[in-house]
């Protein structure tokens, strides 16, 4: 595996690059929250975004499925190219982007519906499946992929909110993969969970990367180290360093990265 090098955009858009951000800037009102981000995200890999609070890593993550569009007073320049198409082009349908790029949030947020309906809701609306056997199969396969099937198979009709926090988060992952996205964005998915649930989610991520490109924002450096193939360090709206995880953690090129990793601030 070749390294993508420091801060540089890979000039060859070869097939193992899924997402390319180039010259991406974002303002919340007057606050320049992301400054000239250039970054290639590799297909079927886990890419971790790390950095102190307010560094822009979550903001960047939300650019990838255009969730920032929902916040008033936001301005974005530059582009994010996915499958050789800039998702900020005028002819892009945001809904279609979000359909292809799933997201899991910091707080587990199951809908106040049954476990079954939580998963089947979006695929049914997208007409990926029909009610009945197709839907049953998808619910089962999604729950199996999310490692939740054994725990909930007897209570699919009970509300999603009745599950424990860790189970809820895996339900949210199952819900995201039921739509059959290419990319799954995870915004600190384990920060609200206990260590055992965290471990389950981490091993789930390792399983899922076979089929999906995963981008994860995390505060937890061990987690980034354990799970990610690539890691990017963000600081005050800049992407300071981006490399293979091992390289970034063991021999960071930038002093800022090193002081963060060694725990001098955060």
């Amino acid at each position: 595996m070749k390294s993508s090098g420091n801060n540089t955009l890979n000039p060859h858009r070869n097939s193992d690059i899924k997402i390319t951000a180039s010259g991406l800037n974002l303002w919340y009102g007057d606050n320049h929250a992301l400054q000239d981000i250039n970054m290639d995200i590799h297909k079927n890999k886990i890419t971790a975004l790390i950095g102190p609070s307010g560094c822009g890593k979550s903001t960047y993550l939300r650019c990838i499925n255009r969730m920032n569009d929902l916040i008033d007073n936001t301005r974005i320049t530059g582009e994010i190219v996915i499958d050789s198409k800039n998702i900020y082009d005028a002819d892009i349908d945001v809904v279609a982007v979000r359909k292809r790029i799933g997201m899991v949030f910091q707080q587990p947020n199951p809908f106040p519906k049954s476990i079954y309906d939580n998963i089947s809701y979006a695929p049914l609306k997208h007409r990926l499946i029909k009610k009945g056997i197709e839907s049953d199969e998808l619910v089962e396969s999604s729950l199996i992929s999310a490692g939740l099937w054994e725990e909930v198979k007897d209570k699919l009709k009970s509300p999603g909110t009745s599950l424990s926090g860790g189970q809820q988060q895996r339900l949210c992952i199952a819900r995201a993969i039921a739509v059959k996205p290419d990319v799954i964005l995870m915004d600190e998915p384990t920060s609200a969970l206990d260590p055992i649930s965290t471990e389950k989610i981490e091993s789930l991520m390792m399983d899922l990367k076979k089929d999906y490109t995963i981008v994860i924002v995390t505060h937890n450096m061990q987690q980034a180290h354990r799970t990610a193939d690539y890691a990017a360090y963000f600081h005050l709206g800049n992407m300071v360093e981006y490399n293979q995880t091992e390289t970034l953690f063991n021999s960071p090129a930038e002093a800022l990265t090193e002081s963060y990793i060694s725990g001098r601030f955060g």
Partner: peptide
């Protein structure tokens, strides 16, 4: 012109 996000069902 290629738009991988084009989805007529939408």
């Amino acid at each position: 012109n290629h738009n991988p996000f084009y989805d007529p069902s939408l």
